[in-house]
Structures are given as structure tokens and as C-alpha cells.
Simulated scan of single mutants.
Amino acid sequence: MIKSKKLAHLLGTLALILTAGSVQSHGSAEINYVPGSGPVIRYPWKITMSSHDTVEFARHVGAKSADEPAQAEPLKGWTHFTDWVALTLTEPAMLTVEISAQPGLHYTTFNSETNTINDLLARGWLYPASSIYEGIDPITEVGHMYNPKGNFSAAINFLKYTEDIAGEQHISYKVLLKPGEYSIAIAGVNAKHCQPTNTECYDGRQGYRAKFTTQATPIRVP
């Protein structure tokens, strides 16, 4: 009998319904995907939300992008293997962030030496993690590593970190926010759940699906 997690992974892989950069939005939300480059925090996702919106999007991150075993604390995260969201919130809101592993997700790469485009399939075994910071920083040269559990750039202020502790390949968290700009990191902690010999799980690009939801709050946000 196939365990439920393996069955879900198999069905998702067979479906092959998503491509990297797939998006959906509801309400007044705006979402754009523009790949970045350079030695700074890259924000491929730029999202604007009010207090009654939903956005969903899918892409891929590095398996160990929030927790590199070979790296010393506190800089355990890989800056450029993490997906960064530049979120602009126009009203006070309760933000709910949900991130799940997504099998069957295609993406393309360009080989400049051969001048060819390659169609690839992201692995579907992500154990997700997410950090949220107040402010955005698209200009500071922060280097290859970052701190997913605290501050590492003077331009953004750490607020919250959540990771998949139970091995469910899913996380969900809520945070009460005032209007403004926020950096949200989407990453993986696969090294805490996978053996190094299991390269399909331990390494490589792992697909994810994210959902952001905002709700109006009668509480004044300080």
C-alpha cells in the first residue's frame, strides 16, 4: 500500500500541470514575476495586496536554501537559492502564508555556450521554510549566505521564521502587518529530513506552491 505522502507526490508528478512562474490572483492583488540577477537580494516575485486579497504562485528553490549543514550559524541560508517576495501591503491586514511542496513543476534554463533552452523538471520533495522581514533591500550586496532567523541587512528588519518541523512538506503561518513593504523568503530545510545519499530529496531544485491571503483586521497595528 502506498503511503499518502508518496501517493500525493506520484499523482502530482503525473499531472504535470504547472510551470515555474504560474500565478493566480483574486481581489485587487497584483503579482509579477521578473527574475533578478547580481550579488543582492533578488526579488523575482513582486506582489501588491490590500486587506482582502489572495495570490497563489509556483516556482522552485534549493533543497537546503534555508539550512546549509556546512555553513556556520547564523548565516545558514543560501541567498540566491531562496525565492524572495517583495510584498507591498496597502492596508493593515492579517497575512496568512502557506507553502507546500509541488511535484510536477517544469522550468526552463538557457545554456549560453550551446545557445539552447532546456526543459527541466523540479523535484517535488520540498520541506519548506519561510522568513519575513519588514522592508525590502534590492541594492545591498549581502553575499551568498543570509540569516533566515534574524537580521543580516541594515535595510530590512527580521520579524518571523517558520519551518517544516513535522515533516509534512507544508507550512502555514499568520502575521499581523501594517501598510508598507516586506521581504518574504521561501526556502527549504531538506537536510533536516533527508539523508545525503537520497539525492532526489537532499539536493537540487525543489518545486513549491505558495498562497498568500490577507484579511482585514479591526486591531490597530502599531
Rank of each mutant, 00 (worst) to 15 (best):
K178D: 00
H170S: 08
A72P: 07
I31K: 06
A210I: 06
P35G: 01
A122K: 05
S112V: 06
A129L: 08
G27Y: 00
S28K: 08
K174S: 11
M145R: 15
R123I: 03
T90M: 09
W78Q: 10
F81R: 13
G62L: 06
I139P: 01
G167T: 10
L120P: 03
I219K: 09
V61K: 04
F152I: 12
G180Q: 07
D164E: 09
I171V: 01
K174I: 04
V34W: 04
F212T: 13
Y161R: 01
P44V: 06
P196A: 01
R209W: 10
Y33H: 11
G204W: 03
I47F: 11
N157S: 14
Y161G: 01
D203R: 01
T162R: 12
E56K: 12
E91F: 02
A8D: 14
I31D: 00
L105H: 12
L120C: 01
A216R: 09
L105E: 07
Q195Y: 08
V85K: 14
G207T: 06
L159H: 01
A8R: 14
A58Y: 08
V175A: 02
Y107G: 00
R209Y: 15
F158K: 12
V189W: 05
L95Y: 05
H80D: 14
E98V: 13
I99T: 03
R205D: 13
D164Q: 02
T197K: 00
T48R: 02
E91Y: 00
E56D: 07
V175E: 06
K6H: 01
Q215D: 10
N147L: 00
V34S: 12
T96Q: 14
N111M: 04
E134W: 04
A154Q: 15
P128K: 08
H60I: 03
A93R: 05
Y182C: 00
P179T: 02
G21P: 10
L159I: 11
T48Q: 13
L95K: 05
K149R: 15
S4K: 04
H106M: 14
I2E: 12
S50A: 14
A210E: 09
K3L: 04
L7A: 07
Y161N: 12
L159G: 04
A70T: 15
E98D: 09
P196K: 09
S37T: 08
D119G: 12
I165C: 04
V85D: 02
Y208V: 11
I132L: 02
G167L: 02
D119F: 06
R205S: 11
A216G: 09
Q215I: 11
Y208I: 04
I165Q: 04
L159D: 00
T213I: 15
S112G: 07
E68F: 07
F212C: 07
T82E: 00
Y173R: 03
V97G: 09
A86G: 11
A101T: 07
N198I: 03
G27W: 13
L16P: 09
K5Y: 10
L75I: 03
T54R: 04
T109G: 01
L11P: 06
Q71D: 13
G36P: 11
T79N: 00
I156M: 09
A210P: 05
S4Q: 12
R123A: 08
Q102W: 09
P218I: 11
S22L: 15
A93N: 01
L176K: 05
Q195P: 10
I171C: 10
T54S: 11
A29D: 02
N157T: 11
T197D: 03
Q206W: 14
P92Q: 07
S22R: 08
G36R: 03
